[in-house]
Simulated scan of single mutants.
Amino acid sequence: MRIAIFSDTYTPEVNGVARTLKRYTDYLEKVGIEYKLFVPESRTPNPTVPQVERFTSIPFALYPECRIALPNPLSINETLKTFRPTLIHVLTPFNLGIYGAHYGKKNNIPMVASYHTNFDDYLTYYHLQFMKKWIWKYMTWFHRPFEKVYVPSPSTKAKLLSKRMHPNIDIWGRGVDAIQFSPEKKSDKIRMKYQIQEKNIVLYVGRLSPEKDIDIVFDTFHSLPKELKKSTHLVIVGDGPLYQTLSTDHCKQITFTGFLEREELAEMYASTDVFLFPSPTETFGNVVLEAQASGLPVIGANAGGVQHLLQDNQNGFLCKPKSVNDFVTKTTTLLTNDQLRQDIGKKARAFALEQSWNRIFDRLIASFEDILEVKTRKSA
């Protein structure tokens, strides 16, 4: 098997798709499957890797962390002619993905796609609802030629089937490094570095943007009972279009860290008390699984991919999307009940230990092999 992969985001960019893709390519190298990866150039300088070909790019308007590449067809053709892929895998439906699909169709190479982002849900937050109809038309047109489309969660699969985007949709879940993210990473260094004096620490990790319902995090914090709020500190980890505004508007008892590298991020998860994640637009929710692996109780929105990671009042709490009252109630419950917080943290960790990246990628490759076998039989 030789896989040509096309994506509009990759490490060192910091987002769920880029991180998943890095895990994916690391796995392919470990098991000895050859691949070529076509991605945009990064804003951050990175070492040249033989398997990776980068192209000039511009930021994507709705999601600047993703970049729209300007492919060089001659260069891609030359690389693929030498590489002779047996499978095309497209992770994003933009310029590079379009070119990958075109090449696969032209050369009769089996193709699969991944669906990672609910861009249609984002439109509401940017007052572009009128574009939803056209987004779905485009997504349906784009994905039709693929043998199969992979999605991260059952709710995403149900959504795409209801839109009749593609008849063959399968789940490609996500895993977590339970050694990297672990309760053992708990450290006093977090409190010392950020000068946190309060007893409790509430954490949010993710993009600072409207579609994450980040306002619910702040409203929840400010609505905590008076005495509880006095003893609670809010930590916001991440960057995004709202960073400048939020970090200026909110100061007292709130710390903005920006992006954190993996080791400090792991320490942050393990050294805080409650993880708030109100985003209703997730196809999965990688940060939720990282928090769970760290033994950190999660309070999330009962929507999208997050609802499949949290069993309410067992390994976390689920709240009605956008309900500040619900988030305040659950946050108060956890911060005022040490035993409950510990119990839920342990169950969250136990759940995360079952989400092995190797097992998930083994299933994905087995699915690829089935597709290639069927294609070979049809061609015989």
Rank of each mutant, 00 (worst) to 15 (best):
S162K: 15
H127S: 13
F259M: 10
Y122C: 00
S367V: 03
V205C: 12
A101T: 08
V31R: 11
S75T: 07
M268Y: 12
V288F: 10
D213F: 06
L353E: 12
C251D: 10
V306L: 15
S294Q: 04
S271C: 10
I76Y: 01
A291C: 11
P225V: 06
E369F: 09
V149R: 03
L203K: 10
M192E: 14
V112F: 07
P154K: 13
E13L: 00
S367D: 14
E369M: 13
H308C: 01
E373C: 11
I201A: 13
V288H: 07
A101M: 13
E369Q: 15
K320M: 13
G16E: 01
P47T: 02
R54S: 09
L208W: 12
F275W: 05
L296F: 07
S182Y: 10
Y243W: 09
T156M: 14
I98V: 04
A69N: 00
G206M: 08
H102K: 05
I254V: 15
T336M: 15
N325Y: 11
L246N: 01
I254D: 05
A4N: 03
V112Y: 07
L364M: 07
I58M: 09
L340W: 06
A380R: 13
N46A: 05
S155Q: 14
I33M: 14
Q342H: 14
A301I: 04
F38I: 00
I33W: 10
K105W: 01
L260A: 08
L128S: 09
W134Q: 05
F181H: 06
V202R: 10
K346S: 01
L335C: 14
F259T: 11
K36D: 00
T376P: 00
P183T: 08
F119Y: 12
K105G: 07
R207S: 13
F259E: 05
L318G: 08
S247L: 04
S231A: 12
R19Y: 01
V374Q: 09
P73G: 08
D8R: 02
P93I: 02
S153P: 06
I299R: 03
L309F: 11
T376S: 09
A301Q: 06
Y115N: 03
H102N: 04
V287P: 08
I344T: 09
A270H: 13
N77H: 01
K229R: 15
E290G: 03
T245L: 04
V274W: 13
I109Y: 03
T283E: 02
R174A: 01
H89Y: 03
T79A: 04
P93C: 01
T248N: 09
P321W: 04
L37V: 00
Y63E: 06
M268H: 11
